[in-house]
Design a protein around this nucleic acid. Structure first.
Lengths: 207, 207, 207, 207
DNA sequence: TATGAATGAGTCTTCATTCAT
DNA sequence: CATGAATGAAGACTCATTCAT
């Protein structure tokens, strides 16, 4: 019984993930999930409060990890270990992110591209906003620790930098870039970021 | 009659734009458009085939312009006038885009953020894909015209560069950045792009 | 067309009234109303916002009249024309109420006995509460105009008197008492009320 | 086991009473009862046939007492001890009722206000009907024992008198009138009833 | 006795679209 | 060109109850 239940629950989750992935949250129906799980629609409600709950159940572990990573980032900033404009820390972070992506592709796909109509419809934007805050704090710290740098970068630019990060992840997910390729491509991005931001931080005496 | 018809049509379009902007394509109902246009729902179908058609009618002029711009870009490429890694052409292009954005905010908003459920739901991605093609061609040309440059940049990176362009536009629209601010911020982006891509194109002898 | 619509609307209202009367608001389904009106369920929603609206549409004219009567009563009180413990005013009021009941039987039935689950589920209680307020004001006025009367009657008693009024109406409706019988019976109630309340208002020197 | 069983049963009853009191019969779900009793829904069905049975189990002791009181009343009537229009018997009865109410508030609340959807939905009306029968018999007896009284009171009036009794109880329950207040207020009601009915029974030579 | 699991009939409601006039 | 009217397919969700174990 206990076993059976777990199986059914797992089966629902599996089917739901498939359906959500195929049609997106909004266009997936409880009926279809039920039918493809070979149970009744109402039985789903014995396992999950509602459609939103079912979706979140699938997606929340990954969501939590992202949130925790953000919190960690905030703490790191406070400790003064800044990666903006620093090659090695950026590289390290890239590796971490790549690993995370590689092990959470399915969920990230749901979160980024299939959540319209759900409670996390705006997850990416919210993430970018929060990430922007972190970046802005980093800049403030840099201002004091390395006063010769130009840190007068607009919040909008930073926002776009964060957006870029998020969107690279999105592209990786969308085009299902392999782990190897991610690592390969990351070099390009690193170079691009490093020289781009470096130039920016002293761009007053350039060009 | 002819006049009347035109007025009604215009009225529908105006109302529809408002509704789509407020609620998005999916959540906008034909009824609400009709009611706020002071006509009957069914009469809308005398002017527009269906909801999707109505939406496209609003959005297609801007869509066409974007497409034409892309086509123009393709031709320019063929002529060898490359802006990748060139400061002034990039700057010129920025100015053009900024002007375009400033005069097409409403439509771009609809296209980028309110089109879920419509046929152009994936417009941004498609745009990026096509833009990527153009970029890749540019690279090929560069390869022959300036053989000393490193043009072995991955298609994925280019794709992301295009994505970045598109997403900057998206951010501008989303946060309703003023014309003045666009111009101001563009300097940052230019510097970032220029030095980022420059470094990349000869990154084999760096770091 | 206009005619047709009116007919359908009327037909829905007629059927709905029948169903509500038979099964009560809660247990009446939109389906059954639709089926018995020979239209589709969804078509009802072209005429009425929802089930509650449909119910209120039937019942609100009568509801309004009751509310207006209460307002009128409040004004009368202010003018000092008190019927508590006065035979003729009580009698006049009875006649008025009897006439009202006789012409609003169906609606009163719905309001009093069939409204469970609707927004006017507690109408009778609310009515009694409000009526009690009016009575209490009457008492206060009496206190000053006829100081030799005992007006120290508990609010709870007044509340019950109002409840009695309301419940007599309810009984009349429930047992479908004819106009003639109402008039006949009213004499009994008048006597009962008159002597009951009279005794009460000087009951300190009694028994 | 036996002990355990009793405990479980008691626990279900206790929870159910709470739920019914809070939400009413109709809106209380077996699930919520089970959950709050820390057992499974289906286990409830080992103790009670269905939702209705569960409700009745809670409410029937009080229901029986009321029924027995009614039966007692019928016998009393037969013995000629009539309280209609008699001060002291009425008073005695009041006291009895007050005591009963005070010790059965919870159940009376359920019976009178929370039974919609259950089999005793119309308990009050049925009670009134039966009580009316008793009153009518009283009247008949009075007619022979005290022929000088006017006993030509309409059944409808008597019905309303019974309704009044029942509704006073309802009001007491609804507004949770304290024992002390009940006793205090009862004087008003007694006076009101006594003089009201007295006048009625000889109202032919009045006014 | 207790439980886990499942069910099916039913609820209100939404909306784009069609069609006759 | 305009309208009134109607529709059908679909949607999420609820809950008392049953049954095998």
């Amino acid at each position: 019984m206990q076993v059976k239940k777990r199986e059914v629950r797992a089966s629902i989750l599996k089917t739901a993930r498939k359906e959500f992935t195929t049609f997106g949250f909004q266009k997936t129906t409880m009926r279809s999930i039920a039918k493809k799980s070979a149970i009744t629609t109402s039985n789903i409600y014995n396992y999950f409060k509602d459609k939103g709950d079912l979706f979140m159940e699938i997606v929340s572990p990954t969501l939590s990890k992202i949130m925790m990573a953000l919190e960690k980032l905030e703490d790191v900033d406070a400790s003064g270990d800044i990666n903006l404009g620093n090659y090695q820390p950026m590289k390290d972070q890239f590796i971490e992110v790549i690993n995370f992506i590689d092990t959470h592709r399915q969920d990230l796909n749901l979160i980024l591209f299939k959540s319209y109509g759900s409670s996390i419809q705006n997850f990416k934007e919210n993430f970018i906003d929060r990430y922007t805050e972190i970046f802005m704090k980093q800049l403030k710290i840099l201002k004091s620790t390395r006063p010769n740098l130009n840190t007068e970068i607009s919040r909008f630019f930073i926002h776009n930098l964060c957006s870029l990060y998020a969107n690279i992840v999105a592209e990786v997910i969308m085009h299902n870039i392999s782990f190897e390729n991610m690592n390969e491509y990351s070099k390009e991005f690193l170079t691009f970021f490093y020289y781009g931001t470096s130039a920016l931080m002293r761009y007053d005496d350039k060009i």
